[in-house]
Simulated scan of single mutants.
Amino acid sequence: MAKKEDGGQGAPSRLGRGLAALIGDVDTEKSALDRARGQRRVPIEFLRPNPRNPRKRFGDEDLADLAASIREKGIVQPILVRATPEDADRFEIIAGERRWRAAQRAGLHEVPVVVHKVGDREALEIAIIENVQRADLNPLEEAEGYQRLIDEFAYTQAELGDVIGKSRSHVANTLRLLKLPNPVQDMIADGSLSAGHARTLVTHDDPENLAREIIESGLNVREAEALMKRPEKTAHESAGAPDKDADTRAIEKRLSDALGLAVDLRHKSSGAGELRIRYKTLEQLDGVIERLVDK
């Protein structure tokens, strides 16, 4: 499939060259001088976020720390922008939205920018590359950014890997995360579940409940992979607990589905038993109490 053109820009195989210098990751005298020549200061209110920015989450604590640093040292690296179509004196952020947000918190009236004439495709590429290289994206945001380049600009996975400096297999494995159900994607986005853990769940029949077991049991990726090979067992059984019959596992699953939490049911030979409900926050505990106590 032929790649869509965007303002006469070249093919992606040529685009990647020089992008490292563009976003400030090549610290040479020449690149520093080039940036200095193109740098200017503009009122902070003249900038607006890029709706295509793959990064959607900006942690409050992270922004507070950066704002404190900006108050003391200023913005060390200029924000990359492009002029808006309706007003050449106002700009859309290509890369550096986190710095812009923190600068507002720090009370800055002006910010340093470097203006570039780029189209939608290259602006999205630069945003993804900058965030990936700085590890600013969570795995799900990275996957969504890759998918947008594929959907809107007809990239193959190999071409995308060349542009962002990653292997085709990395691109493919990252994109697989988008096949997971929304609750599991939420666990990835909030950091509860790593990309390595999540990739083991893609082909599982019940990825949501297995994800909860992995989190609640604190399994590493290798243990999660081992659990995948034995889907009839729970995480606690894989860790050395005795086997459970099908009826017990069915009851555990019903309770887990109802509560949204991992459940461990143990029968004793005397007919007595023990039911454990594992929670991580007081809010989860409150939810259990609301279900068990009459109002």
Rank of each mutant, 00 (worst) to 15 (best):
S69G: 12
V288D: 01
K73N: 15
A67I: 06
E208S: 14
L219V: 01
R35D: 04
I251N: 09
G271S: 12
G218I: 06
T28N: 10
A250Q: 11
Q185W: 04
V42F: 06
G161H: 02
R266K: 15
A250W: 12
Q147S: 13
E159N: 07
D243I: 09
W100E: 04
I214Y: 06
V81E: 00
D247K: 13
D89G: 11
P139R: 00
A250F: 04
G218T: 01
G271H: 04
R266G: 12
I75A: 02
K233S: 05
T156R: 09
A36E: 11
E152K: 02
A20N: 13
L149E: 01
P85T: 05
G10Q: 09
F46T: 07
R254T: 11
S238C: 12
E5F: 07
T28K: 05
R230E: 15
G273D: 02
L292N: 07
M228A: 12
G145S: 00
S169H: 09
G273R: 09
K179D: 14
L80C: 05
K179M: 05
G271D: 00
G107F: 06
D205M: 14
E29W: 06
K56M: 13
A262E: 14
R212L: 10
A241V: 05
H236W: 15
L108H: 12
P139A: 06
A258E: 13
D151Y: 15
R249Y: 06
R276I: 09
D243V: 05
D62C: 11
E208P: 10
D286G: 08
L47D: 00
P85I: 09
M187N: 01
L282D: 13
A2C: 03
R98W: 04
D120W: 08
G287Q: 10
A272P: 12
G260R: 07
A154K: 05
P43G: 09
H170Y: 12
R57D: 14
V115G: 02
L22Y: 08
R291K: 13
S269N: 15
R14Q: 11
G196Y: 00
D62P: 11
R266L: 06
V114F: 07
E29I: 12
G18T: 02
V114A: 02
S192G: 06
R40T: 10
D286H: 07
K233G: 03
A224T: 03
A127Y: 01
E208Y: 14
L33E: 07
R71Q: 15
Y279T: 05
L175V: 13
